[in-house]
Design a protein around this nucleic acid. Structure first.
Lengths: 188, 188
DNA sequence: GTGAAAAATTGACAAATATCAAGTTCGGTT
DNA sequence: AACCGAACTTGATATTTGTCAATTTTTCAC
């Protein structure tokens, strides 16, 4: 909880009434590895904050899993499309480790936006931040070699990258598992 | 102007006062090919709507141009990072054809959000839409072969793709110009 | 229009990466 | 602790894509 509040405070000062409302509304989750926060067909109801753990978003393409992103401690987890559009998701969101999360529902979030106008700034800044991350991932795919992409991911996930299953890393980097294995062997 | 208003109306009904305010505020631009809407170091002041024309966003990496996106008629042009963060841009935005654009400044947009609360929905939906497009581009880079990526771009730009300079297409797809030239020759 | 410069094409070859197949290691369950 | 299946590694080979160079085509300024 305190971690989440401090992340929000870095974006926008939190008034006391807002802080109280947040403390009353946020729900804490302890969930095991392999738990799905979202599966295709479900409408994403909650946005999650990761206090502890790692998650990935992925979808199936021709029977293969393709990992769109990883998120780690102090990141937010959201299916942008489903959560905002209120439509059924096409993707999976899966916990890769036993995790502690905090969440708020879509309806609760809208009420926060109405009741605490300054909170809109938080929402907008976070959307922009994740939009930027998405753009950066795309640019990396465009311009960097396999080795550079792998090194970049190591930099983004210094502690947890080694724990991420290799085949998920591979599909995220747009590479075969064999190639990632060889990169890993050459870097050590 | 009417094209822009109809695009907005598809997202959210426009009240008469809002429509009047938009008509008074929006500025029309007729700009030549090769005009830069934004260059590194500048803070992006305006968001543009393309009534006629095509634009691209690109940046330099080790002396090479890398095209992040193309936008065409009925799209919006914005440097997400610079416009929202009010920080100097690192990218270029360039018109690829003689164009007709409509624009509004950052400050004007904020005043619209304040004065016409329903307009926030338009802003949020557009941000989400472009976020989605960005994600889709990234996924295409991850999962599709060179040929599939090229075919996808042809589908996204059915009329204008043939007019886009090949070397820009190549850097956007993460390919060499020679490869795109060969793909083009094989598809016809 | 004409010529110079830029862009696109084509071919030959090199490098990067994928695929397939065979082992090995690892993790989780009993 | 031992087993089973999944995950990972490694090697051999095939395919894709990049690089370099030469040529043709297009573009644009004069």
């Amino acid at each position: 909880m305190e971690t989440l509040l401090s992340v929000i405070r870095q974006l926008q000062a939190i008034s006391e009434p807002l802080e109280n409302a947040l403390r009353q509304t946020l729900r804490r989750h302890e969930l095991p590895r392999r738990h799905w926060l979202l599966q295709p067909g479900q409408v994403s109801e909650r946005i999650f904050f990761i206090e502890k753990g790692v998650a990935r978003g992925y979808y199936l393409k021709e029977d293969r899993e393709v990992t769109s992103w990883f998120m780690k401690e102090s990141d937010f987890i959201i299916s942008i499309v489903s959560f905002y559009s209120r439509q059924p998701a096409q993707e999976y969101i899966e916990l890769l480790e036993d995790s502690v999360l905090w969440s708020i529902t879509y309806d609760q979030l809208q009420r926060f936006y109405d009741a605490f106008p300054e909170f809109n700034k938080v929402g907008r800044l976070l959307t922009e931040r994740y939009y930027l991350l998405s753009e950066r991932r795309a640019q990396n795919l465009r311009m960097q070699s396999a080795r550079e992409r792998y090194t970049q991911l190591l930099a983004d996930f210094p502690d947890s990258c080694r724990r991420l299953p290799l085949k998920y890393i591979a599909s995220h980097l747009g590479l075969s598992p064999e190639t990632v294995s060889r990169l890993r062997a050459n870097i050590v």
